[in-house]
Design a protein around this nucleic acid. Structure first.
Length: 321
DNA sequence: GCGTCCAGGTCTACC
DNA sequence: GGTAGACCTGGACGC
C-alpha cells in the first residue's frame, strides 16, 4: 500500500437543490459508502478520498451546514500541493456532480402521486440522492467482485484489494484507505493478486480490465455524455463485463438486477417469489422501464436502501432473500 | 472435523 | 442465436 500525506487545503460551500438530505446521501441506510468503504463518518462529518482521472489523490471533508429544505454543504479539499484558483473551481464542480447536488428529483417525487411504491420510498428516504464516483476503476472492481459470489465474499475481496494494493491518505488528522489505481493492478502479478486478495479467476479479469483502461478508455464523465446504449456497449467490450456489470458501472440510470435483487423486485412488482430469478430479470427490467422510465435507477437505489421499511409496509420478507 | 454444494455473472464451445 | 458447462474460493450445511 502506498501512503500519501495531504497537507494543503482549500474550502468552499455547495448549495444543493432542495429537498436534499446530506446524511442519507453520503451515508446510505444500507451501509453504502460514498467513495471508499474505509471513509470515516463522525458527528455528521465525512472524511473520504478521491482519485481524479489524472491520478491525483485528494482528501475530502464534507459537512452539512443546512437543512433538507435549505441544503448547504461545506467542503474542504486536501491535497499534496496548493491548488490554483482554476483547479479549485474544477474541484468544486466535481464534488457537486459527485453528490448530485444539482440534480432535481421533483419529477421523481411526483411519481408518488400515482405509484404506491414510490410514495413509500419518498416518505422513508426523503431527500436522498444517488451519488457518482469520478474514477471508473472502483466501479469496475465492485462489478467484478460482485459476480458469482455471496456479498460477504465480495466484501472480503474488495477489502483485501484496498488493503494490499490501495492507497492510504492522511489529512486533517485522519487516515483513509482508498481503492488501488488501475496502473497498480495492471502491473500486479496475477498469481499474487489471486492469493493476496482471494480473487480466484477474477484476478485475471481484473488485471485485463486495468490494462485496457490504462491504455485508452472513456472516463465516467465521457460515458455520461454518450447515449445510454453507447456507454453500455463500450463497457461491455471490456472482457469480464457483461450486461449486469455494465449497468453497475454506467453513469446512466440503469436497473442492475442480479439474482438477489431480482428476488426482491419479483416480490414487489409481481407479488410472487421468483422460482428462477435469473430467467425473469429481462421481464422485471422491462416493467421498471415502462413504469418509472429515466427514474428507474432512483427507484432501484431507494428500494435497496429501504428493505426494512418496505417489508413492514407491504408485509413482505425482503431482508432475508 | 470433513466432504459437498453453490453463490448478488461471464465467456466459450458446441449445436 | 441459443445454451450447457466451466470458472476460484470460502462459507453454509449435513453428517
Amino acid at each position: 500500500m502506498s501512503i500519501s500525506d495531504l497537507p494543503c487545503f482549500t474550502a468552499f460551500k455547495i448549495r444543493a437543490i432542495s429537498p436534499y438530505d446530506f446524511f442519507l446521501t453520503v451515508r446510505k441506510p444500507a451501509g453504502w459508502s460514498l467513495l471508499t468503504p474505509f471513509e470515516i463518518f463522525e458527528h455528521g462529518t465525512l472524511w473520504t478520498g478521491v482519485r481524479l482521472n489524472s491520478g491525483q489523490m485528494f482528501g475530502l471533508k464534507l459537512k452539512s451546514e443546512g437543512t433538507v429544505k435549505k441544503p448547504e454543504i461545506s467542503c474542504t479539499i486536501f491535497s499534496r500541493k496548493r491548488v490554483s484558483v482554476k483547479k479549485r473551481k474544477e474541484l468544486s464542480e466535481m464534488v457537486a456532480w459527485m453528490i448530485s447536488a444539482e440534480e432535481d428529483v421533483r419529477e421523481f417525487y411526483a411519481l408518488a402521486k400515482h405509484d404506491p411504491l414510490v410514495k413509500a420510498l419518498v416518505e422513508d428516504l426523503y431527500g436522498m440522492r444517488r451519488t457518482k464516483q469520478p474514477d471508473i476503476f472502483p466501479r469496475l472492481i465492485l462489478a467484478v467482485t460482485l459476480q458469482m459470489a455471496p456479498i460477504r465474499r465480495s466484501d472480503q475481496m474488495m477489502t483485501l484489494l484496498i488493503k494490499e494494493y490501495g492507497e492510504k491518505i492522511t489529512f486533517d488528522g485522519r487516515e483513509v484507505l482508498y481503492w488501488p489505481s488501475p496502473e497498480r493492478i495492471a502491473k500486479a502479478d496475477v498469481r499474487e493478486l489471486e492469493q493476496r486478495c482471494k480473487l480466484g479467476y477474477r484476478a485475471k479479469t481484473l488485471k485485463g480490465i486495468a490494462q485496457t483502461i490504462c491504455k485508452v478508455f472513456p472516463t465516467l464523465q465521457e460515458l455520461e455524455k454518450m447515449s445510454a446504449e453507447e456507454a453500455k456497449d463500450r463497457l461491455m467490450k471490456l472482457k469480464g463485463i457483461g450486461e449486469y456489470s455494465a449497468d453497475i458501472v454506467s453513469p446512466h440510470p440503469g436497473f442492475a438486477l442480479d439474482v438477489w435483487s431480482a428476488k426482491i423486485f419479483s416480490l414487489l412488482l409481481l407479488g410472487e417469489e421468483a422460482e428462477s430469478p435469473r430467467i425473469i430479470i429481462p421481464r422485471l427490467k422491462k416493467i421498471a422501464e415502462d413504469r418509472w422510465g429515466k427514474w428507474r435507477g432512483y427507484v432501484f437505489t431507494y428500494v435497496l436502501n429501504d428493505l426494512n421499511n418496505l417489508s413492514r409496509r407491504f408485509n413482505l420478507n425482503l431482508t432475508e432473500l
